[in-house]
Design a protein around this nucleic acid. Structure first.
Length: 300
DNA sequence: AAGAGAGCCAACCGCACCATG
DNA sequence: GCATGGTGCGGTTGGCTCTCT
């Protein structure tokens, strides 16, 4: 794959070793050389003008007319992903948007263009990038989780993990279900999950498609929020906790997550680590060894 | 302050499909 | 029917930024 890519690049660049001594040829090559990399404002302007005059089509004519040294594909991509009106550029996915992506991905698979039609202002690239990041994050969690189960982190290591972190305990046998609807349905009728422990390949990648849905039913579960999070109860709007966050189908007994009094103070975070609260004491001794950390929600 | 690790995102690629001549 | 060019899509890469240690 990589080799193919490199071959393609050298082809486009026209930097083959055929040592043409003709300066004419070189000039011609330079004139037709395809430009790559980041777009400049001037190029954007040319592209926008083209669309205003001709509409979003005839991308190749930009190059054939000598207006831009970009391929038609590149021009189209630039327009669709960055220059098109009403795009939500530089704006993080809202909880609603995340929920839609997760639901649609479960329904349609990796049909990013189709999914993007449900998200005004979002492009297929946006959706794809969002999903990719999410998959990587989940794969990392599961990988860390797997290695932790074989060689538990030292207590000192765990204590060091505190600022702006969140702990999501999962055991290697934590069931994962394939889609949110399954997850929600299973919880509704209290039936058992189908096990899906081959969700992670040997190299730590997630197999497709897997929506991450831990089994909350056995309650070997705890959450640790940083001070910044203003509260202790997990937000199930967030797909990290509940990828099936689909309109509250996933009911939780909030009381189960109420920490003892001390844990709710502003120094909850420190106390949580220094003095395990009752909630934690109720858990098996090995539970803390099964905790893995996630990035702070501010980075989601 | 510096390095490492993770996340984000723009842009590239190959492939598939479609329209046109 | 076939060749060719244009377009759309999904997968992947690499650089930048941020956060943490």
């Amino acid at each position: 794959m990589k080799k193919k890519r490199m071959e393609g690049r050298s082809r486009y660049r026209g930097d083959g070793s055929s040592s043409s001594s003709s300066s004419k040829k070189e000039l011609a090559a330079a004139a037709t050389e395809i430009k790559k990399g980041p777009w400049r404002a001037e190029e954007d302007e040319v592209l926008v003008n083209h669309v205003h005059e001709h509409g979003p089509r005839d991308w190749s004519s930009l190059r054939s007319k000598g207006l831009l040294r970009r391929t038609g594909k590149s021009c189209r991509l630039r327009w669709v992903n960055k220059l098109r009106p009403n795009l939500k550029n530089g704006c993080k996915f809202s909880a609603d948007e995340e929920r839609i992506v997760i639901e649609m991905q479960a329904e349609f698979g990796n049909k990013w263009a189709r999914i993007a039609t449900f998200l005004p202002g979002r492009t297929d690239n946006d959706v794809k990038n969002f999903w990719s990041s999410r998959q990587k994050r989940l794969a990392r969690i599961l990988r860390a989780q797997a290695s932790a189960s074989s060689s538990p982190a030292s207590a000192s290591t765990r204590v060091r993990r505190k600022k702006k972190e969140l702990f999501l305990p999962l055991s290697h046998d934590t069931p994962l279900v394939d889609n949110p609807s399954t997850c929600a349905a299973n919880h509704r009728d209290d039936s058992s999950y189908s096990m899906n422990n081959d969700a992670v390949t040997d190299d730590g990648n997630l197999t497709q498609p897997h929506v991450f849905c831990p089994d909350f039913s056995n309650l070997q579960l705890g959450f640790h929020f940083g001070i910044e999070n203003q509260g202790f109860l997990p937000s199930f709007d967030n797909p990290i906790f509940n990828p099936a966050a689909n309109g509250g189908q996933f009911s939780m007994d909030a009381a189960l997550f109420q920490p003892p009094g001390g844990c709710l103070s502003t120094t909850m975070e420190e106390k949580f680590i220094a003095e395990p609260c009752i909630f934690m004491e109720d858990l098996p001794n090995t539970t803390s060894d099964r905790f893995e950390h996630l990035p702070s929600p501010s980075r989601w």
